[in-house]
Amino acid sequence: MSALRPDLAVIAQWIEPGSRVLDLGCGEGELLDYLRREKGVTGYGVELEDSRVVAALRRGLPVIQQDLDAGLRQFADGSVDTVVLSLTLQAVRYPRELLLEMLRVGREGIVTFPNMGHWQARWQLGVAGHMPVTDALPHHWYDTPNIHLCTIRDFDALCRANGIAVRQRVVLDDRRRSNWAIRLLPNLFGEVALYRCTRGTG
């Protein structure tokens, strides 16, 4: 078993051992598998794509096949400790509603997304004049599943406007590591942003 991807490793650190987790857009279940094995977490994955559902089942994970655009109605209030949405926010139809739903279902929400404010994205759009294609945003405009891209500053504003408290934030570069430049100017040098949120002001 190879080491967990660095962004997933950050998420794993934020999750309490033995807690209950809902991993939205769980893919093949890499994170959930790790959390169950290493941290004794009980949890469910939610995934839409057929082959990923099969891969997660093969790993022995409980996975629920569902479109996140249909909402989280079937998941009861406060039914898990943490809801994770990893690199999926930008691809859903109702990101704000999903975010609020996550914080209804879980005590805590962990959201990660590619930062559209990264200098490469800004350069490609602002100077070169074309839609950005970067490591974190590898698709072309015509084949991208990403319909709601945002910057770190945008996300902060969304949280403020909706009473979402940011408990912790980590920003990583294209190799999914942090450095001094990112800590100084995260919205310019960060490629992936990771947020740990709760309801209420903070």
């Binding site: 994970l61 409980p62 996975v63 629920i64 096949q65 009861a76």
Partner: peptide, 9 residues
Amino acid sequence: YRAGREVSY
């Protein structure tokens, strides 16, 4: 899910 059982769908 509400009963806290392990379920896949």
